[in-house]
Nucleic acid binder design. Structure first.
Lengths: 170, 170
DNA sequence: TATTGACCTCAAGTTTAGTTGAGGTTTTAT
DNA sequence: ATAAAACCTCAACTAAACTTGAGGTCAATA
């Protein structure tokens, strides 16, 4: 099944070809290059030339992004590969294991949230003090928006919530 | 158990009090107000004064955010309440049902992704053509980053993938 | 050969969700 | 009454992940 003779695959791809094949805009490829996620050789005329393996790399990047990993982290992970060499199956294995773990955590967070939501739809409490939804604190807190209780305990207990802060109170 | 006499809860809260109670920065409250997520009355001296119910509203906003709903959508949802009135239990019920649905979808997406990841760790293929990870296309695609295949079919099938675009090929 | 399409660089703009700061006013506490 | 703490507005800045545009070069084709 060798179609070989026809036009034997050029070793190098132009940025436009990579864009077409990967479904990523040229400008994004430039951007990724600037961010150190991919690299390119240049033609005499200074145009980007990519080895076909860049497609694999991009595939990995896209998958990582889908799992919610920020580009900066993806870049770190990729460049942490010994010598920043081409991706091999074993690299993929290691990376995807990590990302899977991340994904699992995110899923766990969201699932916990959903369950709380489910149980709080009934009660409609939203009590500052009692509602698990208001206390992500003890739960795994999703992407720490950096909002922590500033005052609490004594004051909070005696003053804050009668029924006033609940929805149920209405 | 009425502590009433002590200091009967002032009806209105200052922005600082709301910030302290809700764990949200004053600047963020200003910001939310600018975005139409919350509103305030003003004192003679033009300082913000909130009814205690703002705390509930903020609670709802924060929960929605945790589920990954963008502020603009939260705003829409809140202002779509008939007459933009105070949140009632029934509103909370409706909103949280919607958001729970969103959440479920996100969870489903991520779970699907994780499962694909799991199965692809073994194979390490990442084939442009065959790998489910490369074809979010038919799956629920996570937050459409707006990257669609630009060319396909004929050309893609005959030219693209020999073994070259796979990781397994290594 | 000449034109057109693909590329190049660099700067600036976009969106989301806020934060920071300057310059000035109001409240609260002493 | 006065000083300190809290508040006000408005503009500008941040970060992530890109996109758009201007001004100019390279390469494939008729």
């Amino acid at each position: 099944m060798e179609k070989s003779k026809a036009h034997l695959p050029r070793r190098e791809l132009s940025v436009g070809e990579v864009a077409a094949r990967s479904g990523i805009a040229v400008s994004t490829l430039h951007f990724y290059e600037a961010k150190g996620l991919i690299r390119s050789m240049r033609s005499r005329g200074n145009q980007r030339r990519y080895p076909r393996s860049v497609l694999r790399r991009i595939a990995v990047i896209k998958i990582a992004q889908r799992t919610g990993i920020p580009l900066a982290d993806i870049q770190k992970a990729l460049s942490a590969l010994p010598d920043d060499r081409q991706l091999m199956a074993s690299d993929w294995e290691r990376l995807s294991e990590n990302w899977k773990a991340d994904l699992n955590e995110r899923i766990a967070r969201l699932t916990a949230l959903r369950d709380q939501l489910t149980s709080c739809i009934g009660c409609g409490c939203l009590s500052m003090r009692d509602c698990p939804l208001r206390n992500p604190h003890d739960t795994l807190s999703e992407k720490g928006t950096g909002a922590y209780l500033i005052e609490h305990a004594g004051e909070e207990k005696s003053e804050a919530v009668g029924q006033a802060d609940t929805l149920a109170g209405f």
